[in-house]
Amino acid sequence: MRYAVPIRVLLHRFAYLLLVLMAFMLLMLGKAEVALIERARTVAMDALAPVLNVIRQPVDAVQDMVRGVNDILYLRSENARLRDENARLLAWREAASRYERENARLRNLLHVTGEPVTTFVSASVVGESASTFFRTMLLNAGARDGVEKGQAAVAAEGLAGRVMEVGQRSARVLLVTDLNSRIPVMLEQTRTRAILAGDNTDMPRLEYLPSSAQLSPGDRIITSGHGGGVPAGIPVGVVASITDGIVRVQPFVPFDRVEVVSIARHGFARLPGPSGIPLSVQ
């Protein structure tokens, strides 16, 4: 009791200082333990890395062997498929050559004139107008590039429209969805002719279809080439709906994302003139 009382007094007097020292010591001990753990982990990683590398080599070798076997099996099946496809293509080439010779012989017998020549001029879309009254796009190619009024504007997906105005350095294209657009088309499967008429909606109509025409949603529509200017066989769209006798066509071209189109310069390249002088006809 003689020593306990002074010790207790000292503890009460320096209790705050002792608590601060203990907290500081705990903090330093925690940092020392983290550094020690990190050091031990680093040493263990350095020691295990060679062992893991040795263990991984057989696993990698087995995986490479499995991949090689899979590649060989795939190449074998691909080779068989390509052989079959090559045989079919050879048969088609032989048939095409035979039909080409027969076609040339018949044309010579019938004195058939040559097919129209189609060349293309690429142009970028620099502006567009899609309002209630007009649906057009502006191109950066004009008369100096050989663009003429009435020529077809073809995007990567299919027919976009026809040239309606031509300047020296620019041209304006009337889209197939415009109210004033009229394009001669036909059903690809049945060859039934019609007129694709725009009405300022996203899906133009098919007009002047024969009463005996047979069509259904999903049928492909292509240009017929009648009337000149637009080459035949250009994809236009598919039949989207048939409601109350009105046939709607969904165009292939996404008009809001078109950046480049090709202007089709379509016509007979040369025809003999009255005195034997070749005349150029576009």
Rank of each mutant, 00 (worst) to 15 (best):
D202A: 08
P235L: 04
E157V: 06
A155I: 13
R144F: 12
Q151D: 14
K149P: 08
A197N: 14
P217G: 05
P217D: 02
V154G: 05
E207Y: 09
A194M: 09
A155P: 09
S181D: 03
E207C: 06
S211G: 10
E148V: 12
M186A: 15
G218M: 01
V147H: 05
R191S: 14
Q151S: 10
M137G: 02
V173K: 06
G218A: 04
S170D: 12
P235Y: 03
L175H: 11
I183T: 05
A155W: 13
E259R: 02
R182P: 10
M203E: 15
V230D: 13
L196C: 08
V253Q: 00
R205G: 00
R191P: 13
P210C: 01
G161C: 13
S224I: 12
S211M: 09
L175V: 14
L215G: 00
A155K: 12
P251G: 01
T192D: 01
D244I: 03
G161Q: 04
K149I: 12
I183N: 02
S212K: 09
K149E: 13
A160I: 08
A156M: 15
D244K: 07
D199Q: 08
P210H: 00
S211P: 06
V247I: 02
N180W: 12
N180E: 12
R191G: 15
I246F: 12
A155N: 10
L215W: 01
I195H: 07
P231K: 10
